[in-house]
Design a protein around this nucleic acid. Sequence first.
DNA 1: TCGCAACACTTGAGGCGTCAACTGACTTGG
DNA 2: CCAAGTCAGTTGACGCCTCAAGTGTTGCGA
Lengths: 167, 167
Amino acid sequence: MTVVEEPGSGTRWLDTDELAAWMPFCALLLTLPSALDGQLQRDADLTLFGYLVLARLSEAPRRTLRMSELAQMANGSLSRLSHAVARLERHGWVLRATCPSDGRFTIATLTDAGHEKLTAAAPGHVAAVRDLVLDAVGADELAVLGKLAVTILEGAGTSVGEPGCPG
Amino acid sequence: MTVVEEPGSGTRWLDTDELAAWMPFCALLLTLPSALDGQLQRDADLTLFGYLVLARLSEAPRRTLRMSELAQMANGSLSRLSHAVARLERHGWVLRATCPSDGRFTIATLTDAGHEKLTAAAPGHVAAVRDLVLDAVGADELAVLGKLAVTILEGAGTSVGEPGCPG
DNA sequence: TCGCAACACTTGAGGCGTCAACTGACTTGG
DNA sequence: CCAAGTCAGTTGACGCCTCAAGTGTTGCGA
């Protein structure tokens, strides 16, 4: 059990059904990101987060986004993004510049080299996602999984993030 | 999209339905562990992984497990566990000893202080799990989520891990 | 127009995890 | 028995993330 059974306290502990669902899901949470990260690290010297950063930029108009928007869309904190983009910039995959219209913003742009890097890394990553997740569950179950994820994210106040309109 | 649309290559890219499920689920994978870790870190100065280590030990006979068993049951690598247990040991929550019957094994034991630590941390953690996950989904959906997690874990060759019989 | 708060980041320190190399303990084959 | 191999675990270096404290910019009220 993920949790101790302690009678008499005020906490409502997990019942059998909840444990039966939570334990494997918790295992998944600890396991899957490492697996995805590992594949990208081995085959492309990229983090999953770094990959998402490149991917989000590649879909944005002019391949450009504000750091704060990018952070949300890649599901990370601004600090984490700042560090990650610094690394990506070091490799020449991303460029940063101060936004001309508002000096507080920083806009990040995917370079051509960055786009090449992304397209080179994508097949392996997609294969891993298929292999580890998509192939294991049917189409109907996959839809349920997506809905559940959205529900949980909404409950936690996290948005799934659609592109905004960068300067 | 998590993935670039590249026509003409050999890779089978994610279609709309797959993306609609994968994107939020991926967001969840990047988001939930941090949230759970954060609560434990703030309120109990514990990692989620460290919490699981304590929890698994607390349920084991004689509160004792071999490191390798414990690693599996807590969903981590042996190296990760070694570092984690070293930290827990520094706090006096766990003890390590060489197994008398086979000197290769190390057995980890939860101390009384460790058990107190666990019972002190548990209510907050359970509350977070309820708050972030269980409360957001209904009982039926939760069961589905559990089944999906098991399916994915099995596909990846990971076991959800039942206790073994430590020496 | 000055000061101050809010905002958007950046930076550095410290903690955790991974990987690869290592140690020490059993096992097995000659 | 001894050498080589395997197994369980540890260690250290390095990379990434978080947190808190910083920088520089803009807006706003007096």
